[in-house]
Amino acid sequence: MTEGLMISIYIFVLAAFVGVEVISKVPPLLHTPLMSGSNAISGITLVGSLIAAGEGHGGLSVILGFIAVVLATVNVVGGFLVTDRMLKMFKKEPQKKDQRA
């Protein structure tokens, strides 16, 4: 087993523990934004997509990369934006009725 792989496995296991610690402290109140926000974070696969789409050799690889960039960007942009839209609504004080509505 290579040293690089060993480090990756360490990272994988430690990240899982961090995940459990951090996520279990999120109150049910915010579980929906948690899902959409963490979902946007999983769009990090975009990093891999960008390299595949830009390597410039091999038609198929670039096409796959391009589709992956589109999908992952929708995931990232849509995920973070919609999470922000939701979190904006969580207020402690009752607000004045929205006049535009």
Partner: peptide
């Protein structure tokens, strides 16, 4: 590694 870390965080979540 950034993919491994964030993927795992979301996986556990």
């Amino acid at each position: 590694n950034v993919l491994i870390i964030s993927g795992t965080l979301v996986g556990t979540s």
